[in-house]
């Protein structure tokens, strides 16, 4: 039974005019944006912001982007955006937005796909799905809770890994589906049950994030490994057929 009553979800979050204070290339197809908000709001790991673009004729386009930065991190709010060819908002953010620009944002939003450091968390992400999980990992590391967290990230090649210099650690495992780094012990292949750290502690909550196909495969895998379905929280990004 899904039952989560939280007071931490946003009650009403106004639009704010955020300033882009930093842009970092994570991979050839992903950029992180550091945003300074006029009225910074506390967030939970896993929440997202909505970014709204407005054309001079009043036309708007809004999309959701997960927060990558940890709750309580005094540095700027960070989002990471994958550039989808032909995508309206992601290509604009990649190709046009520069440091110093302003963006309308609203958030933080979401009270379900959040981890507050209260239960063991098994984080499974594919591609850009690592973004909200990174907020959880960063939060755990900042607060001495890494023992509660296990992270598995699936990417196509080493060049596709976000937060590459930061993500490695005893609590995180990488799965490469197409190309591995030199001397990597695991051959390139899609996520398998053996890639999930086991045993899975009782009371573990799983957070699965990625494309719809990845999310389906990974969430069913976790259920097959014995995680009760109501303990698997899923967030799906991006296009599907």
């Amino acid at each position: 039974m899904i039952d989560l009553v939280t007071d931490s979800g946003p009650r009403s979050s106004p639009w704010q005019n955020a300033k882009v204070v930093g842009i970092k290339e994570e991979t050839a197809r992903a950029k992180s944006f550091q945003l300074a908000l006029p009225e910074p709001a506390p967030h939970l790991a896993g929440q997202h912001y909505v970014v709204r673009l407005t054309a001079p004729d009043g036309y708007t386009a809004s999309r959701s982007y997960s927060i990558a930065s940890a709750p309580g991190d005094p540095r700027e709010l960070e989002i990471t955006v994958e550039r989808l060819e032909g995508g309206e908002v992601s290509t604009f953010l990649h190709d046009e937005v520069a440091v110093g620009d302003e963006l309308d944002v609203r958030g933080p939003i979401g009270g379900w796909f959040v981890w507050e450091g209260d239960v063991p968390a098994l984080l499974v992400g594919g591609g850009s799905g690592v973004v909200p999980l990174m907020a959880m990992l960063r939060y755990a590391r900042l607060n001495g809770k890494v023992d509660l967290v296990r992270l598995v990230v699936s990417v196509r090649t080493p060049e596709d890994l976000y937060y590459a210099e930061e993500i490695a650690g005893p609590e995180s495992a990488l799965v490469y589906t197409r190309v591995t780094p030199a001397a990597f012990p695991r051959p390139p292949a899609r996520l398998t049950p053996e890639d999930i750290p086991q045993p899975i502690a009782a009371g573990t909550r799983a957070y699965v994030c990625g494309s719809s196909g990845f999310a389906d495969a990974a969430s069913h895998m976790l259920v097959d490994l014995g995680v009760p379905a109501p303990q698997v929280r899923v967030e799906r990004f991006g296009p599907s057929g």
Binding site: Y59, A61, F92
Partner: peptide, 30 residues
């Protein structure tokens, strides 16, 4: 206030069936 450099994905006439802030996903069904 508009976003510097943003003009939208060269939309033709905006479809009146679209509520404010919505876009047409076409054949896809996310």
């Amino acid at each position: 206030r508009f976003t510097r450099g943003f003009s939208g994905r060269g939309q033709k006439e905006r479809d009146l069936r679209l509520p404010p802030g919505q876009y047409d996903t076409g054949d896809r069904w996310p």
